[in-house]
């Protein structure tokens, strides 16, 4: 994979004023360890470039995930210097240090090296009642939704999530409470309950308000500050909380 990498040709100039990067990389599964690599610092270099260079130049057995390399797919999320991020959109320079520690995403079991097992995360996505459901088919006319309506705007605020898992890995409550569905799943639930085409709003809401649901959130805001595309799961979850409260007071969603 990634054989068109420019790194092999070493076409980029090594910045003269920068020392080499000291990179600690997680190896193995949960009982693994760190390997240290020295990688030349370059003028223009992302963390994903660094990982790729290590795999190409130092250790071909290094496992990691990536696909698009340009911040569209969300596959390359890892923990970099203690913080979950998209490695393709994290410039080495932005870390303001030459010492880099790269681990797989937190709050998920480690499979091998930098690849975390995301199945628990995806399962929770499903448990939040997050399957879109409609009675309509392709033979029906598309739903007409006013783009300025409150619900459409709310759904819009949450809909860009691409399931990268960065917020899930950044959430303390996910780490502390196995039942908690997490910010990504609840953010999805919020976009669904605001989707007027969705015909299982009650079910989605019931799951989002259940034992692992929105009331577990303490509004720490970690998800919000970690989201690479600036979504606010904190807001989505707050919306669900408010909805649950209003439902209890007899106001229908």
């Amino acid at each position: 994979m990634g054989d068109q990498s420019p790194l092999k040709q070493n076409s980029e100039t090594v910045a003269s004023d920068q020392a080499a990067l000291k990179v600690r990389v997680w190896r193995g599964a949960d009982d693994g360890h760190f390997d240290e690599f020295t990688v030349p610092a370059r003028e223009n270099q992302t963390i994903l470039d660094v990982v790729t260079e290590i795999q190409h130049q130092h250790d071909a057995s290094l496992s990691y995930r990536f696909a698009c390399r340009v911040g569209v797919c969300g596959s390359c999320a890892m923990t970099v210097n203690g913080r979950a991020r998209w490695t393709c959109r994290t410039h080495v320079r932005s870390l303001k240090t030459n010492e880099i520690t790269i681990e797989p995403l937190s709050n998920m079991p480690k499979i091998k090296d930098l690849a975390a097992d995301m199945s628990g995360f995806i399962d929770k996505w499903g448990q939040a009642g997050n399957d879109f459901s409609s009675d309509l088919s392709r033979h029906d006319a598309p739903a007409k939704i006013d783009p300025t309506s409150k619900k459409r705007k709310r759904a819009n605020d949450a809909i860009e999530c691409i399931n990268c898992g960065v917020c899930h890995a950044s959430c303390d409550v996910v780490r502390w409470n196995d039942d908690y569905l997490g910010p990504a799943a609840l953010n999805r639930a919020w976009s669904l309950v605001n989707d007027v085409r969705h015909n299982k709003t009650e079910e989605t809401l019931a799951a989002a308000l259940g034992p692992g649901g929105c009331s577990n959130c303490h509004s720490q805001g970690n998800c919000m500050s970690a989201c690479p595309i600036g979504l606010s799961p904190t807001r989505s979850i707050a919306g669900l909380k408010k909805m649950s409260l209003l439902a209890m007071l007899g106001v229908k969603p």
């Binding site: 923990t79 203690g82 937190s106 480690k110 950044s170 780490r175 509004s219 970690n222």
Partner: peptide, 13 residues
């Protein structure tokens, strides 16, 4: 096993 994430000591945290 679930590993640690280092909490970022943001103001809201």
């Amino acid at each position: 096993m679930i590993t640690t994430t280092h909490p970022r000591w943001s103001i809201s945290y």
